[in-house]
């Protein structure tokens, strides 16, 4: 039980996020109105995605140094979970955009950058699957993962800032940045970030363990013969 405290925490925080996120009082801003609640379900996806990608890159570096396949499993599964979050982020974002901007896709720089980022990581999965040797797959996957992350950072953090975005807080749109992210929003937003990230970690953790079991089983079968 002691080792599982963070899973309990994840469940409690998720329950809190959903209940508080849907029921608590939120500030009334023009354009946004009630859709400001997307903050807890859409923006948090990106936070979770980027945090998990960082973990994946750290483990890719670790793999290149150690050559231990266990590190590669961690990198792969965290990337998988990050991709899931990314897809959910795009979908929730599109739904939200339909009601605030009027279109599912408005060619907003951040929207485009996020889509390109996802393309990068889909390519990562295809690259891995096109290599057959386990060690080669792990090594080249790790190299591309780090390389892609290095390109992902300017894509997400620098380019969208150079042009006006439709996103709240940019280009004179009302938003939840510095000046009007009030304490009521923060009270749900920060726990929500932690909750979704923990859920992602949990998800990848399960897949990593399944993968290790699978490998063990394979080794056993091979050794028997």
């Amino acid at each position: 039980m002691r080792a599982h405290w963070w899973k309990v925490l994840a469940i409690i925080l998720l329950a809190y996020t959903i209940v508080a996120g849907l029921l608590f009082e939120v500030p009334r801003l023009p354009i946004l109105n009630e859709t400001i609640r997307a903050l807890y379900f859409h923006v948090t996806m990106w936070f979770g995605m980027i945090l998990m990608l960082m973990v994946a890159v750290a483990y890719s570096v670790k793999y290149l140094r150690s050559g231990n396949l266990k590190d590669d499993d961690v990198a792969l599964e965290f990337t998988n979970a990050a991709i899931l979050f990314g897809v959910l982020g795009i979908v929730t974002g599109m739904l939200w955009a339909k009601f605030t901007w009027g279109d599912y896709w408005s060619g907003d720089p951040k929207q485009n950058a996020a889509a390109i980022g996802l393309l990068m990581y889909f390519a990562y999965l295809i690259l891995r699957n096109s290599l057959t040797d386990v060690h080669q797959r792990a090594r080249i996957g790790a190299v591309y993962n780090i390389f892609a992350f290095a390109a992902f950072i300017p894509l997400i953090f620098i380019l969208p800032r150079l042009t006006d975005s439709l996103h709240p807080g940019n280009g004179g749109n009302p938003g939840f940045n510095a000046y009007d992210m009030d304490s009521k929003l923060r009270m749900v937003f920060y726990p929500a970030v932690i909750a979704w990230t923990l859920l992602g970690v949990w998800l990848s953790n399960l897949r990593i363990r399944a993968k290790r079991l699978e490998r063990k089983l394979e080794d056993k079968i091979i050794n028997q013969q």
Partner: peptide, 27 residues
């Protein structure tokens, strides 16, 4: 150059070259 190094290790080189490099080159 880096992507072609990566893609050369895999079999379907031409497709991989495109899908790996395009998103990275966009910025």
């Amino acid at each position: 150059t880096m992507v072609s190094g990566i893609a050369s290790k895999a079999s379907n080189n031409a497709t991989l070259m495109a899908i790996l490099s395009f998103p990275i080159i966009i910025p």
